[in-house]
Design a protein around this nucleic acid. Structure first.
Lengths: 134, 134
DNA sequence: AGCAATAAAGATAATTATTACTAACTTGCT
DNA sequence: AGCAAGTTAGTAATAATTATCTTTATTGCT
């Protein structure tokens, strides 16, 4: 039995938050999730969104892309892949594949006595939409 | 002549800020730079540090590692390399090498009609210090 | 050196994302 | 239904960063 495990009750709002994050490829912010759910859950509170996103991130249910333009971006897709951030419009786009030499990561980790749990690749540039006209 | 270029005057404080960032491997925050320089520049203002770091980052003189635990971390080392973030103590450690398949990045960029300007690899885990005893 | 024009800084206020708090409401279990 | 523990709304508090505005420093020119 793991004493660090907390019992967690069902919560309709929490389910909705997870579903919202999983339903989109836009790598949403807490704000986006809040605005998206607000019509269906008029008494939803922004704090609840933050709290649950943090929780999901903590137990690996979702993943964080990092902080882009001052806001944390989440991703419901937890399979390893790469992200591209458009410096112009701020869009975050999925790039298939990991692009990284996993064996070399292992080797480096061992050499430097680090325990590597995860890694992510963030590419910066201009997206197709911003490149071509408006 | 490039009309977008701004004339920039010399500033002793700006030089000190750049020197401070370049002098350390700790990937400092604005706060760190401020506290480090304050003894020698008693009338230094935090706003000045933020302003100049943003400027340096903008023109590529320094680079941002990203936002770690709510604070942006900078790096005076602009040669391509990888970063490791300790989830326990928040330390950011340089990892030599790029670990990434550059050819595949090119290929992906072309396929997806993206212009890739840069990318960075961020590894997460536990550093040697945190792994072994205190 | 003196002086006008412009850039940079200090000090402080304002903004913005996120977190903490507390009282009211759900949920799970008996 | 009734109780204990978890969850939320609403709001206040934090903390990092940015903007503003007045003063000071730097530059280029005479």
């Amino acid at each position: 039995m793991d004493s660090t495990e907390k019992k967690r009750n069902f919560s309709r709002k929490r389910e909705a938050i997870l579903k919202a994050v999983r339903s989109t490829k836009c790598h949403p912010t807490a704000e986006w999730v809040y605005r998206t759910l607000k019509p269906d859950y008029p008494d939803l509170s922004l704090g609840t969104v933050y709290r649950n996103l943090a929780q999901f991130k903590n137990d690996g249910t979702i993943v964080s892309v990092g902080t882009i333009n001052g806001q944390e971006r989440y991703d419901g897709n937890v399979t390893p892949h790469t992200h591209f951030v458009c410096s112009s419009c701020g869009a975050v786009i999925d790039i298939p594949g990991r692009l990284i030499d996993e064996a070399q990561v292992e080797k480096t980790a061992e050499e430097m006595h680090l325990r590597v749990d995860s890694w992510d690749v963030l590419m910066h540039g201009i997206c197709a939409k911003c490149l071509h006209g408006k």
